[in-house]
Design a protein around this nucleic acid. Structure first.
Lengths: 149, 149
DNA sequence: CAAAGTAGTCAACCAAGTTGTCTAACCTTA
DNA sequence: TAAGGTTAGACAACTTGGTTGACTACTTTG
C-alpha cells in the first residue's frame, strides 16, 4: 500500500496538470502555482513581500522575485506602507482580480468533476480531513504551502 | 474556501517535513523524496533508468542523475539487462532494502498519528478517494509522481 | 536489410530557489 | 534620547535539480 503522501503528490499533480491544460486551451497565460497562491493570499489580507514568502514557504528573496514578475506583468502593484517607511504593501490590480476569479471557477469545475467521479461526500471528507490534520499538526501558524520535492 | 490542491500541497509538505525531521533525529541520512520513491518502485518491479524517470515524472537524464547518486551511496546497483544490450536493470541492494523498510515503518507511524487526529475511517476514505480519482483521471498509466511547483 | 526508434551518456544550459551582505528604517530600553 | 538589536527590502553570487540537444550502440519494424 502506498503511503498517503504519494497519493497527495500524485493527485496534486494530476489536478494541477488539468488546470494548466485548460488555462492554455482558453489562451490565458498560464502562471505558475505560486502566482495563483499569491493572488489568493492577497485577496484576503494586505501583505508585504516578507508575508508572502512566509505564506509560500520560501525566502523573502524568492518571494521578491515572484512579486517583481507579477508587478511587471500588471497583476499586482506596490503601494507604500502606511506606517512603516521600509515596507510596501503588495496589492492586486483589476487584472489580478480577474485572473483569480477565472481560476477559481476553473478549480470549482475540476472539483465538481472530482465529486462526480468519487462522490461529493468523499470530497467533503477529504477536504475536512486534511484541514483538520493541518490544524492538528500546526495550529494557527500554518506551514509553507509549497511542496518540497 | 481553499481549493483542494492547496490542501494537498500543504498536507504533503507537513507530512514530509515530519518524516524528514524524524529521520534526522535518528541519525539516518535523509535522502530526498525522489530517492525513497525510487526504492519503493524498485521493490515491486524491475526497472531501467527510463522506467524510473517516467514513474517520477522527470526526464531520463534527471533520473540517471538520481540513479547515479544512489549507486554511489550503495543503495542500488546496476545489472545488465537480460535481453537488451543497451539497457541496464537497476536493483536495490540490502542497504537500500533496509532503508526502505525503516522508512515504511516511519510512514506507518505518521499515518497512525494522522488517524488518531482525524479518525481512522477518514484516513481510509482519503486514501481510497484519491486512489479512485487518479484511476478515473489517468486509468492504468499513472501520471508522474513529482508535484510540479 | 534498411529505416525508424530507444537506452544510456555527455555536455550546455536554465529556472527557481538559496545564502550572504548591505542600507534604511524601526523598536526597545536604559 | 542615544545605543544596540531587529527588520524590510534590494543586490549579488552561488547551488540545485531539473531541461534540451546531440551522439552511440543497439533494437524493432516494415
Amino acid at each position: 500500500m502506498e503511503p498517503v503522501p504519494m497519493l497527495l503528490a500524485m493527485t496534486y499533480r494530476a489536478m494541477g496538470d488539468q488546470f494548466h491544460d485548460r488555462l492554455r486551451q482558453i489562451g490565458l497565460e498560464p502562471l505558475r502555482p505560486a502566482h495563483g497562491y499569491v493572488f489568493r493570499f492577497l485577496k484576503e489580507k494586505r501583505a508585504t513581500t516578507v508575508d508572502i514568502g512566509q505564506h509560500l514557504g520560501v525566502t523573502k528573496q524568492a518571494a521578491a522575485k515572484i512579486v517583481a514578475e507579477l508587478d511587471e506583468w500588471g497583476y499586482v502593484l506596490r503601494e507604500p506602507h502606511p506606517t512603516d517607511k521600509r515596507a510596501q504593501y503588495v496589492a492586486l490590480t483589476t487584472k489580478g482580480r480577474d485572473y483569480l476569479k477565472f481560476a477559481d471557477n476553473l478549480w470549482a469545475d475540476l472539483e465538481a468533476e472530482m465529486a462526480e467521479a468519487i462522490g461529493a461526500d468523499t470530497v467533503v471528507t477529504i477536504r475536512q480531513g486534511l484541514a483538520a490534520y493541518l490544524q492538528h499538526v500546526h495550529g494557527e501558524d500554518q506551514p509553507g504551502l509549497r511542496p518540497v520535492w
